[in-house]
Amino acid sequence: MINSWVYIESEGSSIEDVSLEIIGRLNELKNDIDLKITGFYLGTKPGDLPRIAISYGVDHFIFLKSDLFSFYDSQTFVNGISDLVRERNPDIMLFGATYQGRDFAGRLAARLKTGLAANAISLNIDKKGLLYTGVPGYGGRFIAEIVNMKARPQISTVRQGIFKKMERDESRSGEIEIVDVELKGFNQKLKLLERKKLDIKDITKSERVVIIGNGAGNNLKPIEEFAKLIGADIGVTRPVADRGLAPRDIQVGSTGVSLNSKIAIIFGSSGSNHFVSGIERCKFVISVDIDKNSNIFNYSDYCVVADMFKLLPFLIKRMGGDL
């Protein structure tokens, strides 16, 4: 049997989609290989979390418990889990490629003297338990298929929005294990002073997305108004997020999210590699750019050469009341 562990990233009783997506993918792989899926979490009290994870398809849940796990700190978490990993020696450990997942997995791989494949967009496991991950490089133009034949566990972080989570099913059953972790002699150095979380929509699931590119400057209003009229969620390119005009969570591209929408309408982007890898899976792409040579048109179904600020009033007028 091949043992795979999935980091359950969670706050309260809601689990990050990416963790559930990884579990979904591993369940698909179960059709061909003998695979056990263990979810693990580090926290202060288990609550409903183990049951929820099981209802989404883990066979086994390990809750590592310590008062020091009340907020995320990589040093604390790595110290908290490394003994258990050494003892159980799973073949594979997977983390969402979120801020936290990447931070945690990188340090853990160094501790365990093993390799890590980051940001995987494909996951395959052969019968011997060798993990093949597809890791995008150069902004997503190439994918390197990575293997680690040298050490265990094989660790990888997985990009969100690539795999499908399973439907929640309360009748699924699984084993729940609670492990009290004693961090003897460990002196926690990092202190959490403040935490701000906004409720931001996960646009990897949106059907309609309007993307604001750098060409919009600081004037996002007309695009936002247009998006509202067609019932679309907003995404942005990196420079727009860099300028603090939008949260990183809705940045599209290699260091942001990948869309899966039916329609993506892009205003004022030059179509760099790092960006277009995020719109590959959209069914229809429409772009508006003032420069007829903008590279974004090479990645678009419908191309409009126009100044967005002149075009948008007509578009908004045409839509007025119709939707």
Binding site: E16, F71, Y72, D73, T98, Y99, Q100, K189, L190, K191, L192, L193, E194, R195, K196, K197, L198, D199, I200, P247, D249
Partner: peptide
């Protein structure tokens, strides 16, 4: 962090 930020001290 996802959806926001933290202030931490070390």
């Amino acid at each position: 962090i996802r959806g926001g930020h933290e202030i931490v001290e070390m």
